[in-house]
């Protein structure tokens, strides 16, 4: 088991390095733009002084060779220092730290909601395969899964914010502000959650040992919990892992629609403003988070399955 974790950690480090490097070079393909972007932000585009751009080039080492810049930057990443935001003129890391908890809260709430509906629904669908509940839930989740996040978000705003006035349209001011964005995010995931849970459960139910359990005459509850559910547990873990991945991408949209002050909207702003350091910081941190969570999910999955835990892995 330990060997497995170590191996995966090493791969993860490699991936993280590659991700940072890729991001860096994607964003820095045209270095000249950086200085121009800074000046643009500072002066609002009115005073694009050549000399100012020169000074900025020098100040931020933007005229040094690429590999030097890259190396310095990489060291910075190591120390979790992504530089100063062009737009806000504050350390990138400070802003990210301020916003990260908000995204985390939103994401976890959405995962919880989606799991709350998706897992039981998937399990029940599998137990009553091809009957009314199964067909209904599959059709319903298919429909819901096809609705794009921004549409469902807008519809929810119209109904629950504007017409019914139950929740605010945006921002994070009240306790109820989290409801609509979380529901929007969850709606996007519930279809996949249900389907994967159903498939996982069906796979377990048709195994030989389920028939053997029935042959032993044990209580139906024991059969469902100790045999079926226990074997479907790895599927649940996979499903939750997938959802978290979806959140990191989907949060960009949802946070933008609901003006939720999180990492996603920060990233979107950075793109619009060509705020390079902020862009790098957000992309890398979001991707790091994604990778770390995937690793965690894989480890938990392996730990749950004795076949991996007790053999070489």
């Amino acid at each position: 088991m330990l060997k497995y974790i170590v191996k995966r950690l090493l791969v993860m480090l490699l991936v993280l390095w590659a991700v940072s490097t890729m991001t860096y070079f994607m964003v820095h393909v045209t270095p000249g733009d950086a200085a121009t972007a800074i000046v643009f932000n500072l002066t609002g585009g009115t005073n694009m002084d050549e000399e100012l751009i020169e000074r900025i080039n020098k100040r931020f080492d933007l005229d040094k060779p690429v590999y030097v810049q890259y190396f310095n930057w990489l060291l910075g990443v190591f120390r979790m220092d992504f530089g100063i935001s062009y737009r806000y003129n504050m350390p990138v890391m400070d802003m990210i730290k301020a916003r990260l908890p908000n995204t985390a809260r939103l994401g976890l709430t959405a995962v919880f909601l989606s799991a709350l509906i998706g897992i039981p629904l998937g399990v029940l669908s599998a137990l009553r395969q091809n009957r009314l509940l199964d067909h209904t839930s599959r059709v319903a989740t298919l429909f819901i899964g096809s609705v794009p996040g921004f549409l469902s978000g807008l519809v929810l705003i119209i109904i629950f914010s504007l017409k019914l006035k139950w929740f605010p349209t945006s921002g994070m001011k009240t306790a109820g502000s989290i409801v609509l964005p979380a529901v929007t995010l969850a709606l996007g995931m519930v279809a996949t959650t249900t389907r994967m849970m159903r498939t996982g459960m069906l796979d377990v139910l048709r195994q030989d040992f389920m028939v053997v359990a029935k042959a032993k005459g044990i209580r139906r509850s024991s059969m469902l919990v100790s045999h079926a559910f226990r074997n479907a547990l790895p599927s649940i873990v996979t499903v939750i892992g997938l959802q978290i991945g979806h959140i990191l991408g989907g949060s960009v949209l949802v946070e933008t629609i609901f003006a939720w002050p999180g990492l996603g909207s920060l990233l979107n702003d950075a793109v619009s403003n060509r705020d390079t350091p902020m862009l790098e910081g957000c992309v890398i941190l979001i991707t790091f988070g994604y990778t770390a969570i995937n690793l965690l999910v894989d480890v938990v999955y392996a730990w749950l399955d004795p076949r991996v835990k007790y053999t070489e892995g």
């Binding site: 791969v11 490699l14 991936v15 993280l16 590659a18 991700v19 890729m22 991001t23 994607m26 964003v27 393909v29 045209t30 991945g245 990191l248 991408g249 989907g250 960009v252 949209l253 990233l267 979107n268 793109v271 060509r274 390079t276 862009l279 957000c282 992309v283 979001i286 991707t287 994604y290 990778t291 995937n294």
Partner: peptide, 22 residues
């Protein structure tokens, strides 16, 4: 396959946003 893993580490929207900068 390692390269594929690296690409898979990016959430799609995040990757596309990063690419559009240049």
């Amino acid at each position: 396959m390692r390269i594929v893993d690296i690409f898979l580490a990016f959430p799609t929207i995040v990757f596309v946003l990063a690419m559009t900068t240049f």
